[in-house]
Amino acid sequence: MASATPVVIYPPDEDGGRRVRIEGAIVGRAFSMQDVAAFMQEAGLQQFDEMDVVRSSLIEWRGGGPDVWAH
């Protein structure tokens, strides 16, 4: 993960899912912080958990922070 904010979490869609982009590639949709943590783990940060999702400077939240999951 080379760039300053390599992870972008997009605003919730009509189903409450948020697209997750890691280093330029869409890796899926998250419906909770646990889902985001799982994507981060798959990207190589095996120790990443939900608290890391909340406080990480690696993540740029668009359309609301980690507590926003409804459209």
Rank of each mutant, 00 (worst) to 15 (best):
E42K: 15
V27P: 04
A30T: 05
Q41Y: 01
R21M: 13
M51W: 12
R29I: 10
D52R: 07
L58H: 08
S56C: 03
I9G: 01
M51A: 15
Y10R: 09
F39W: 03
I59R: 04
Q46C: 09
A4R: 14
P66A: 11
G44C: 02
P66C: 11
I26H: 14
S56P: 02
G16M: 02
G16V: 05
S56R: 05
A25Y: 10
F48C: 09
D13V: 07
V20R: 02
E60I: 03
P6N: 05
G63L: 08
R21A: 10
R19G: 07
A43G: 01
Q47C: 09
A30Q: 03
Y10T: 02
Y10S: 06
S32T: 09
S56H: 03
F39T: 02
V20N: 01
A37N: 00
V20I: 11
Y10A: 08
I26A: 12
G44E: 02
R29T: 11
M1C: 13
G28F: 04
R18A: 04
V7W: 01
I22G: 02
M51D: 15
F39M: 03
S3N: 10
P11F: 08
G16W: 03
R55A: 11
M40E: 06
G64A: 07
M33E: 14
D67M: 10
I26R: 13
Q46V: 11
G65K: 08
R21S: 09
F48P: 03
D35K: 07
V53P: 03
I59S: 04
I9E: 02
R19W: 06
V36S: 00
V8A: 10
A43H: 00
L58V: 09
G24T: 05
A30H: 03
Q47V: 14
V7Y: 02
D13I: 08
Q34C: 08
I9R: 02
D67Q: 12
E50Y: 07
G24M: 06
F48S: 08
V20G: 00
G64Q: 08
M51F: 14
D13H: 07
I26F: 13
P11A: 13
D15A: 14
G63I: 10
D67P: 00
G64R: 10
D15E: 14
D15N: 14
A25T: 15
I22K: 01
Q34A: 15
F48K: 07
E50S: 12
G17M: 06
V20S: 01
Q34P: 00
V54L: 13
T5R: 13
V8R: 14
Q41F: 01
A4L: 12
V54F: 11
S3H: 06
G64C: 05
V7P: 00
D13F: 06
E14K: 14
V27W: 04
G28W: 05
V20Y: 02
E60G: 10
R62W: 07
E23S: 15
V8G: 03
D67L: 10
V36T: 00
P11N: 12
A38P: 03
Q41M: 05
F48M: 09
D49R: 11
